[in-house]
Design a protein around this nucleic acid. Structure first.
Lengths: 139, 139
DNA sequence: TTCGCATTCGCAACCCGGTTGCAAATATGC
DNA sequence: GCATATTTGCAACCGGGTTGCGAATGCGAA
């Protein structure tokens, strides 16, 4: 599926900024902060536009949003199976404590947890922390 | 163990702000944002002081820091077994999507996960999301 | 191809949590 | 009670996130 069709299919108009960002996300193994996107696509769009593009992607189910260790939002392209109302909900993330990169891990089984009485579970996310391949290599 | 001794034991001087904040955290079932602490202890200390108190608690192992859904830091008193260099590392948090509260869950088993080649795991955190007792009751 | 309208963009400005530098206040050991 | 290292409060700064609004643009219809 090409990028433009993918955008249209999710109800978004096709613009330079959106195409560029979506392709960037799709080509990345890690989740990118707005900051990273700005750096990777210099001069492509205003920071507000990037903010809105990423926000829109999350709303329509084109990208996941995940917080890095310091609380800044990072985005990763969704795989097929996500849509506006329901993102793939069993999802794991790996955060590198060296470089701060966030990686998405697919196919992770999550444990059953018993919650205190009265609590209702909706989603589970497993957050892993350690060193990524690149940083292990450097040290 | 009383609060003052606990502070001294962790190498911190005993001050009004620290005692008040530590007791607040210990008496709370949920993790508190700096904002919450300010609201709970009006006039006790400047926001910078609260920031530094919470920061100090985390450094010496008196409190855990955990991000809420929007990336703001929340703190919860550590149970015995945490120290300066090593916080209890298998820990689960429950975030209420209604009120934003963060609860700590003890005694949760985490699954083994196989990471991509070259990655090194150090800690795991399970993040659960849903509705807390109070919010379920309201709806 | 051109037109019209709804959407999107860029800018300026604002908000808020987090953070620092520094001088005044204070906890602690003697 | 004194000296000193730590802690506090203030003012100010920072950066990510967010909004309002007029200008530019995508896209369906003519």
């Amino acid at each position: 599926m090409d990028t433009s069709s993918l955008l249209r299919e999710h109800g978004l108009r096709v613009t330079d900024a959106r195409v560029a960002v979506l392709e960037l996300l799709q080509g990345s193994t890690r989740a990118l902060a707005q900051h990273d996107v700005e750096a990777a696509l210099p001069g492509t769009a205003d920071r507000v536009t990037l903010f809105r593009v990423l926000q829109a992607f999350e709303e329509v189910g084109l990208a996941h949003k995940v917080m890095d260790a310091s609380g800044v939002a990072c985005y990763a392209a969704c795989k097929a199976g996500c849509d506006t109302h329901r993102h793939k909900d069993t999802h794991a993330h790996f955060r590198c404590s060296e470089c701060g990169a966030v990686f998405c891990l697919e196919h992770v089984e999550l444990p059953k947890v018993k919650l205190p009485a009265g609590f209702k579970l909706r989603e589970s996310h497993l957050e892993l922390e350690g060193m990524c391949k690149g940083c292990v290599a450097v040290v």
